[in-house]
Design a protein around this nucleic acid. Structure first.
Length: 493
RNA sequence: GGCGGCAUAGCCAAGUGGCAAGGCAGCGGUCUGCAAAACCGUUAUUCACCGGUUCGAAUCCGGUUGCCGCCUCCA
């Protein structure tokens, strides 16, 4: 089955054809390291993490490059404010970024180059552009001459006239065309600088990505990704730089993730309405955040709210309750003959069929522009069947049922590894969830357990009235009790 | 002003012209001392609105309305 993905460049879904069969080269624009990451950064990271994992699951050898911008106006500003160096600021936030990403289960990219480690390459590329008449120096700055590049605007679907007509006027009189952008900026007093043919200066923002992508992936590579706000001007300018210099296509497919919104408004640092990853992880399990994001298609906007996160938590609790049941059943069946009967029958056969279909349906959804929402729908379908099987009164431990349950575990593990879900020990997940929710609500766990102990006593004496009173009392605090054969367990609603 | 996107149940959300996935919430049932969880059933004669193409449209085309994004740093 072929994999289709939506290409921003052509505005349609296209079949993915790698340059080298079986390999994928992907470049994604990373962060500017001047502040802590928010959940918008998390979404982008999770989206491309899952895309990478899926390509690998599908058998591709992926080289995933994600850069760090470690020299830029905001970093300089912050370094000056804190009376330190840009290296100090960027290192601090790169470390924080890596910690946050690890915390939400994002696997590190193959290569994570930094802009400041590629200054030589940038100077070489700017010289090439100068030689081709696509760049001009002006008082220590170097600008890209957009009029010299015929394809300018092709990614964002604009043309130069339209942009000039509606442009907010840039008062930089050194530019020949207001849309020309800086490749190199002469450094002012107090700014970091590198030697260059144009005097001491620092790189413009866009040039680093052209250089680093080419360095690790070649002049033409498969996929370029990033947040949708980068389409213009950043990615448009990258195309102008790379294609202008090398005379060949830059990236074959452009993938852009949609934004995180807060109350239907874009969340961003400039608007100040953002939640940091760290903040969110105090309130929700990492997998809840991932699940929440993956329930929407990566190109759609996603609205963060207390309610929607709470719903996502319920959804994950449902999954983990099933995983717990599955784990318990497998434990109970340990030592049962490993070899399954050659032919399954009845309920085992039905469930085995559902499970066998799941990877196919999963691939069908993911091959359609990484439709994680649809794929998760299929997972829930399988979970429903699995619950029915596990809680059926006629369930017995034997080699047939164990074979099917092992199949369930393997199938869910396989999909879980792509999504970065279902990877925690179920017992631990549910316990941590309970503790996190108890802390959020300011509940006293010791007191809850005391009440439960009191209720056990009442139940042993068949004092149902007293037992129900305690249940009610706890229910008022959103504590839900579950009486099982091995005692009472509790969770938070 | 220019360019682009979106509009599907109470909420979130998938939907590739051929009977509208899934999650959360609700309701009825089974189970249970009572519950909870789980399972079964149920909840959109209808996909913002108006036209058109078609045997057939949530899906394609045109228009209207509303929301959002980009055009300035941004994931």
């Amino acid at each position: 089955m072929s994999l289709k993905l939506y290409n921003t460049l052509t505005r349609r879904k296209e079949e993915f054809k790698p340059i080298t069969p079986g390999k994928v080269g992907m470049y994604v624009c990373g962060i500017t390291a001047y502040d802590v990451c928010h959940i918008g950064h998390a979404r982008s990271a999770v989206v491309f993490d899952v895309i990478t994992r899926y390509f690998r699951y599908a058998g591709f050898d992926v080289t995933y490059v994600k850069n760090f911008t470690d020299v830029d106006d905001k970093i300089i500003e912050r370094a000056n404010r804190e009376k330190t160096t840009i290296g100090d600021v960027s290192e601090r936030f790169i470390t924080r970024h890596n910690e946050d990403m690890a915390a939400i289960g994002v696997e590190p990219p193959t290569v994570t180059p930094k802009a400041t480690e590629n200054i030589d390459g940038m100077i070489r590329l700017i010289r090439t552009l100068e030689e081709k008449g696509l760049a001009y120096a002006m008082d220590g700055d170097v600008y890209y001459a957009v009029e010299g590049f015929r394809g300018y605007g092709k990614l964002s679907g604009r043309n130069l006239e339209d942009m000039l007509a509606g442009a907010r006027v840039d008062v930089n009189e050194r530019k020949r065309n207001p849309l020309d952008f800086a490749l190199w900026k002469g450094s002012k007093e107090g700014e970091p600088w590198w030697d260059s043919p144009w005097g001491p200066g620092r790189p413009g923002w866009h040039i680093e990505c052209s250089v680093m992508s080419q360095r690790y992936l070649g002049e033409t590579f498969d996929i370029h990704g990033g947040g949708e706000d980068l389409i213009f001007p950043h990615h448009e300018n990258e195309i102008a730089q790379s294609e202008g210099a090398y005379g060949k296509p830059f990236a074959n497919y452009w993938l852009h993730n949609g934004f995180v919104r807060i109350n239907s408004e874009k969340m961003s640092k400039s608007l100040g309405n953002f939640f940091t990853i760290e903040e969110m992880l105090r309130r929700y399990a990492p997998e809840v955040l991932r699940f929440f994001m993956l329930q929407s298609h990566y190109r759609s906007p996603v609205d963060f709210s207390e309610e929607s996160l709470a719903e996502a938590r319920q959804g994950m609790d449902r999954c983990y309750s099933t995983l717990k049941l599955l784990q318990d059943a497998l434990k109970a069946g340990e030592g049962t003959a490993e070899t399954a009967p050659a032919v399954l029958t009845g309920k085992e056969k039905d469930l085995a069929e559902v499970l066998s279909r799941l990877p196919e349906r999963f691939a069908e959804a993911m091959n359609d522009d990484f439709n994680t929402a649809r794929a998760l729908g299929y997972v829930f379908d399988a979970i429903r069947h699995l619950n029915g099987f596990l809680l059926d009164k006629t369930f017995i431990v034997n080699s047939a049922s164990m074979a099917v349950l092992h199949q369930a575990r393997e199938t869910l593990d396989g999909i879980g590894r792509v999504f970065g879900l279902f990877l925690v020990d179920p017992e631990r997940y549910l316990l941590e969830d309970r503790e996190r929710e108890a802390a959020k609500r300011g509940l006293d766990v010791a007191e809850i357990e005391r009440l439960i102990a009191g209720r056990r006593e009442a139940r042993e004496n068949k004092d149902w009235h007293r037992a129900d009173e305690i249940r009610k009392e706890l229910a008022a605090r959103q504590v839900v009790l579950k009486d099982g054969p091995s005692g009472t367990t509790w969770s938070i609603q």
